[in-house]
Amino acid sequence: MTGNQTGNENVKAQGPKHKRDLTRRKVVVAGAGAVAVVGVGGAVVATASADTTKKSGAEPLASTSAGEECYKLTSETTEGPYYIDADKLRQDITEDKEGIPLTLRLKVIDNETCKPVRDAAVDVWHCDALGLYSGYESFSGGGGGGTPPTDAPSGTPTDVPTGEPPAGGGGGGGHEEPTSDTRYLRGTWKTDRQGFVTFKTIFPGWYQGRCAHIHVKVHVNGEWTDAGYEGGTTCHTGQFFFDEESVLASAEVEPYSTSTTERTTLDEDTIYDQSGAQGGLLKLKYKKNDIAKGVVGSLTVGVDPDATNTGTDDAAQPSTSASAS
Rank of each mutant, 00 (worst) to 15 (best):
T261H: 01
Q274K: 15
K287S: 13
L282Q: 06
L132F: 07
R105C: 10
K19F: 15
V218C: 06
H18Y: 12
A48L: 04
G131R: 02
G39L: 07
H18N: 11
T47Q: 12
E230D: 13
T233Y: 01
G155T: 07
D159E: 15
T191F: 01
G144P: 01
D313I: 00
F241Y: 15
P166D: 13
R105I: 01
E59Y: 11
T237C: 08
T233Q: 11
Y82M: 09
Y207A: 10
T147L: 13
T77L: 04
S140T: 13
V253F: 00
L284S: 08
T300Q: 12
S319A: 13
D181P: 05
T162F: 08
D51N: 15
S65V: 14
T52L: 12
I100G: 01
V38T: 15
S323Y: 06
G131E: 07
P149G: 05
I271H: 07
E69T: 09
V216H: 02
G276K: 12
I271E: 05
T188V: 14
K107R: 15
T182F: 09
V45P: 00
S275M: 13
Y272K: 10
P255V: 03
G231D: 12
A324F: 11
D192I: 09
G80M: 01
L132S: 00
L104S: 03
K217T: 06
V37E: 01
K217I: 05
G231A: 07
G168P: 09
A86L: 12
T188N: 05
L132N: 02
K200I: 09
C211F: 06
G145W: 04
E69V: 06
T74G: 07
Q239L: 14
G205R: 03
C127K: 01
D267I: 13
G7R: 02
C114G: 06
Y184V: 03
Y136L: 06
F203N: 02
L73I: 09
E262K: 15
H126T: 02
P157Q: 05
G15A: 04
L89H: 02
A129Y: 02
F203H: 08
G80P: 04
E177F: 06
Y184I: 01
